[in-house]
Amino acid sequence: MNQIYKLKENLLLAEKDEFLYVLDVDLGRVHSFNITAKIIFQLCMEPRTVQEIVDEYRSYFDVSVAVGWRDVNAVLKNLSQYGLLQQDTR
């Protein structure tokens, strides 16, 4: 079974100067994401596996498979630590 990731509910988003600002309404916390993290964050708006996120991410940034996995895993780890992700299996 594959782990799938999706953003939790009750998040408000706003973009400015290439940054994405996210308000977690439940917790009252604000986060900001740079352009790399923003793309990965936005890919998590729909339920996806890590492999699907990496594939989409690589289509945006034209990076190697290794770099794609490294970036995606790093951002997913941060999003999980912030409590912004829901995880399920497919």
Binding site: A14, K16, F19, L23, V25, D26, G28, V30, H31, S32
Partner: peptide
């Protein structure tokens, strides 16, 4: 910076569950 200002202003918010997308976007801008 924008993030620090948002954290400062919304960190003291009593009823943040009422906030709208519209207001959050305006505050960010």
């Amino acid at each position: 910076d924008t993030l620090s200002a948002l954290q400062s202003i919304l960190g003291s918010c009593v009823n943040i569950k009422n906030i709208s997308s519209y207001l959050f976007e305006r505050l960010v801008s």
